[in-house]
């Protein structure tokens, strides 16, 4: 089973939009790999540096409400995918972004605000990392000598997409 997660990147703001995840000027790239250097390039957050080790070494993103709002561009999940980030955990997502994540076989996990706060309590730890077990709907966060696990809810269809490796394979075998 594919492993989900890795070093955690904390993006502490709601309504982070697809232009901030990958600016429109890079939509002219025609391979996913070409998007790699532009991850979160236009995102302005105190203490956040798109070019830092922490950004590029991340395997999971933790953020707030309405993540991925704006355009339908699947370049947003792709820029995560090609940089080794295959899970985004948020209080809520914009519908198209959320669907794009599952359609690519990646996980978009929604948690209530208190659990998101709990995850953010690890933001100060340089070694904060998250591991997600999609089949069992559990995630574990470690860092700064602490560790805890929590359950999450994911719709059976979304889980099936992740386990199938995405919507194209799923749909092609079924319809």
């Amino acid at each position: 089973m594919k492993k989900f997660g890795g070093p955690a990147l904390f993006l502490d703001r709601s309504d982070i939009n697809t232009d901030e995840i990958i600016p429109a000027k890079y939509l002219t790239e025609i391979t996913k790999e070409d998007l790699k250097p532009y991850l979160l390039e236009d995102l302005k957050l105190p203490g956040f540096d798109p070019k830092s080790e922490r950004t590029y070494g991340a395997g999971a993103v933790v953020t707030r409400a309405n993540f991925g709002c704006g355009s339908s561009r699947e370049h947003a999940p792709w820029v995560f995918e090609v940089n080794g980030i295959n899970v985004v955990i948020a209080q809520s997502f914009a519908r198209i972004f959320r669907q794009n994540m599952f359609n690519c076989g990646m996980a978009a996990i929604e948690l209530p605000p208190e659990k998101i706060d709990q995850l953010f309590s690890y933001a100060g730890a340089a070694d904060a990392a998250i591991e997600v077990d999609v089949a069992n709907s559990t995630l574990t966060i470690k860092g700064g000598g602490r560790e805890e696990s929590m359950q999450f809810e994911i719709s059976p269809f979304d889980k099936a997409l992740v386990l199938a490796g995405g919507w194209v394979d799923y749909a092609d075998s079924k319809y």
Binding site: N100, N103, C104, V168
Partner: peptide
């Protein structure tokens, strides 16, 4: 509106 994978399917 959908992403590229939904469009592809």
């Amino acid at each position: 509106g959908v992403g590229t994978t939904d469009l592809e399917v």
